[in-house]
Amino acid sequence: MAKLSVEIITGERVVYEESDVDMVVAPGADGALGLLPSHAPLFTLLSLGEMRVIKSGEEQSLAVFGGFLEIADDHIRILADAAERAEEIDVDRAEVARERAVSRKSEGTSATEDMMRAELAMRRSMVRLKISRRRQGRQGGGGSSAQSPN
Protein backbone atom coordinates (compact mmCIF):
# COMPACT_ATOMS: atom_id res chain seq x y z
CA MET A 1 0.00 0.00 0.00
CA ALA A 2 1.11 3.52 -0.71
CA LYS A 3 2.70 5.52 2.06
CA LEU A 4 3.08 9.20 2.70
CA SER A 5 6.21 11.26 2.81
CA VAL A 6 6.22 14.26 5.10
CA GLU A 7 8.40 17.32 5.40
CA ILE A 8 7.98 20.10 7.91
CA ILE A 9 10.07 23.19 7.29
CA THR A 10 10.29 26.53 9.04
CA GLY A 11 12.19 29.64 8.05
CA GLU A 12 15.07 28.54 10.25
CA ARG A 13 15.41 24.84 9.59
CA VAL A 14 13.99 21.54 8.44
CA VAL A 15 12.14 20.33 11.52
CA TYR A 16 10.96 16.95 10.34
CA GLU A 17 11.44 14.76 7.33
CA GLU A 18 10.09 11.24 7.08
CA SER A 19 8.90 8.80 4.47
CA ASP A 20 6.76 5.62 4.66
CA VAL A 21 4.29 7.35 6.94
CA ASP A 22 0.83 5.84 7.40
CA MET A 23 -1.18 8.78 8.58
CA VAL A 24 -0.89 12.43 9.52
CA VAL A 25 -3.25 14.45 11.67
CA ALA A 26 -2.77 18.17 11.24
CA PRO A 27 -4.41 21.25 12.75
CA GLY A 28 -6.07 22.76 9.70
CA ALA A 29 -7.63 26.21 9.73
CA ASP A 30 -11.08 24.65 9.54
CA GLY A 31 -10.43 21.97 12.13
CA ALA A 32 -8.25 18.89 12.42
CA LEU A 33 -7.39 17.08 9.22
CA GLY A 34 -6.64 13.39 8.95
CA LEU A 35 -4.47 12.65 5.93
CA LEU A 36 -4.07 9.15 4.54
CA PRO A 37 -2.26 7.94 1.43
CA SER A 38 -3.99 8.66 -1.92
CA HIS A 39 -5.53 11.81 -0.52
CA ALA A 40 -6.85 14.24 -3.10
CA PRO A 41 -4.58 17.28 -3.71
CA LEU A 42 -5.31 19.72 -0.94
CA PHE A 43 -4.00 23.07 0.11
CA THR A 44 -4.80 24.47 3.52
CA LEU A 45 -3.79 27.04 6.06
CA LEU A 46 -2.72 25.70 9.42
CA SER A 47 -3.76 27.00 12.78
CA LEU A 48 -1.71 26.36 15.87
CA GLY A 49 -1.97 23.00 17.49
CA GLU A 50 -0.74 19.49 17.65
CA MET A 51 0.29 17.51 14.64
CA ARG A 52 0.63 13.76 14.80
CA VAL A 53 2.55 11.52 12.44
CA ILE A 54 1.83 7.80 12.60
CA LYS A 55 4.39 5.44 11.15
CA SER A 56 4.39 1.66 11.67
CA GLY A 57 2.16 1.95 14.73
CA GLU A 58 4.39 4.54 16.37
CA GLU A 59 3.18 8.03 16.88
CA GLN A 60 5.28 11.14 16.80
CA SER A 61 3.82 14.40 17.87
CA LEU A 62 4.82 17.93 16.98
CA ALA A 63 3.69 21.43 17.81
CA VAL A 64 2.91 23.55 14.75
CA PHE A 65 2.16 27.25 14.97
CA GLY A 66 0.45 28.32 11.78
CA GLY A 67 1.61 28.02 8.20
CA PHE A 68 0.65 26.13 5.06
CA LEU A 69 0.08 22.52 4.21
CA GLU A 70 0.03 21.02 0.76
CA ILE A 71 -0.63 17.41 -0.06
CA ALA A 72 -0.24 16.08 -3.57
CA ASP A 73 0.90 12.70 -4.89
CA ASP A 74 1.24 11.32 -1.36
CA HIS A 75 3.72 13.99 -0.45
CA ILE A 76 2.91 16.33 2.41
CA ARG A 77 4.72 19.60 2.44
CA ILE A 78 4.31 21.80 5.49
CA LEU A 79 5.72 25.28 5.69
CA ALA A 80 5.19 26.28 9.28
CA ASP A 81 5.66 29.69 10.82
CA ALA A 82 7.20 27.77 13.70
CA ALA A 83 7.30 24.11 14.68
CA GLU A 84 8.86 21.91 17.32
CA ARG A 85 9.11 18.20 17.88
CA ALA A 86 7.54 17.03 21.13
CA GLU A 87 10.91 16.15 22.63
CA GLU A 88 12.26 19.61 21.87
CA ILE A 89 9.62 21.39 23.90
CA ASP A 90 10.93 23.10 27.02
CA VAL A 91 8.13 22.40 29.51
CA ASP A 92 9.37 24.81 32.18
CA ARG A 93 9.65 27.64 29.70
CA ALA A 94 6.20 26.91 28.31
CA GLU A 95 4.76 26.90 31.84
CA VAL A 96 6.37 30.23 32.66
CA ALA A 97 5.20 31.69 29.35
CA ARG A 98 1.65 30.56 29.98
CA GLU A 99 1.56 32.10 33.44
CA ARG A 100 2.98 35.34 32.11
CA ALA A 101 0.43 35.44 29.31
CA VAL A 102 -2.46 34.65 31.64
CA SER A 103 -1.50 37.38 34.10
CA ARG A 104 -1.01 39.91 31.32
CA LYS A 105 -4.41 39.01 29.95
CA SER A 106 -6.12 39.32 33.32
CA GLU A 107 -4.65 42.79 33.82
CA GLY A 108 -6.63 43.60 30.73
CA THR A 109 -5.90 47.32 30.61
CA SER A 110 -3.36 47.36 27.81
CA ALA A 111 -3.94 48.00 24.12
CA THR A 112 -5.77 45.50 21.94
CA GLU A 113 -2.57 44.64 20.14
CA ASP A 114 -0.93 43.64 23.41
CA MET A 115 -3.98 41.61 24.31
CA MET A 116 -3.82 39.78 21.03
CA ARG A 117 -0.16 39.05 21.54
CA ALA A 118 -0.81 37.76 25.05
CA GLU A 119 -3.69 35.61 23.80
CA LEU A 120 -1.46 34.15 21.09
CA ALA A 121 1.38 33.52 23.53
CA MET A 122 -1.03 31.75 25.83
CA ARG A 123 -2.36 29.52 23.09
CA ARG A 124 1.15 28.69 21.94
CA SER A 125 2.31 27.71 25.41
CA MET A 126 -0.82 25.67 25.97
CA VAL A 127 -0.22 23.68 22.80
CA ARG A 128 3.34 23.04 23.95
CA LEU A 129 2.23 21.94 27.40
CA LYS A 130 -0.48 19.66 26.09
CA ILE A 131 1.88 17.89 23.74
CA SER A 132 4.68 17.40 26.23
CA ARG A 133 2.25 16.17 28.90
CA ARG A 134 0.86 13.58 26.54
CA ARG A 135 4.32 12.48 25.65
CA GLN A 136 5.26 12.07 29.28
CA GLY A 137 2.05 10.21 30.03
CA ARG A 138 2.76 7.81 27.22
CA GLN A 139 6.30 7.18 28.38
CA GLY A 140 5.34 6.68 32.03
CA GLY A 141 2.35 4.41 31.33
CA GLY A 142 2.86 2.14 28.37
CA GLY A 143 6.64 2.29 28.26
CA SER A 144 7.98 1.24 24.88
CA SER A 145 5.12 -1.13 24.18
CA ALA A 146 4.64 0.20 20.67
CA GLN A 147 7.59 -1.45 19.02
CA SER A 148 7.94 -1.15 15.31
CA PRO A 149 7.48 -4.51 13.59
CA ASN A 150 10.78 -4.47 11.72
Binding site: G28, A29, A40, P41, F43, T44, L45, F68, A72
Partner: peptide
Protein backbone atom coordinates in the same frame (compact mmCIF):
# COMPACT_ATOMS: atom_id res chain seq x y z
CA UNK B 1 -2.05 21.12 -13.14
CA UNK B 2 -3.80 19.54 -10.19
CA UNK B 3 -7.26 20.21 -8.97
CA UNK B 4 -6.58 21.33 -5.46
CA UNK B 5 -9.08 21.40 -2.66
CA UNK B 6 -8.64 24.61 -0.69
CA UNK B 7 -9.30 25.18 2.94
CA UNK B 8 -10.79 27.59 3.83
CA UNK B 9 -10.89 28.85 0.18
CA UNK B 10 -8.45 29.73 -2.62
CA UNK B 11 -8.55 33.49 -2.04
CA UNK B 12 -7.76 33.21 1.67
CA UNK B 13 -4.95 30.76 1.02
Amino acid sequence: ARDYIFEPDPTTV
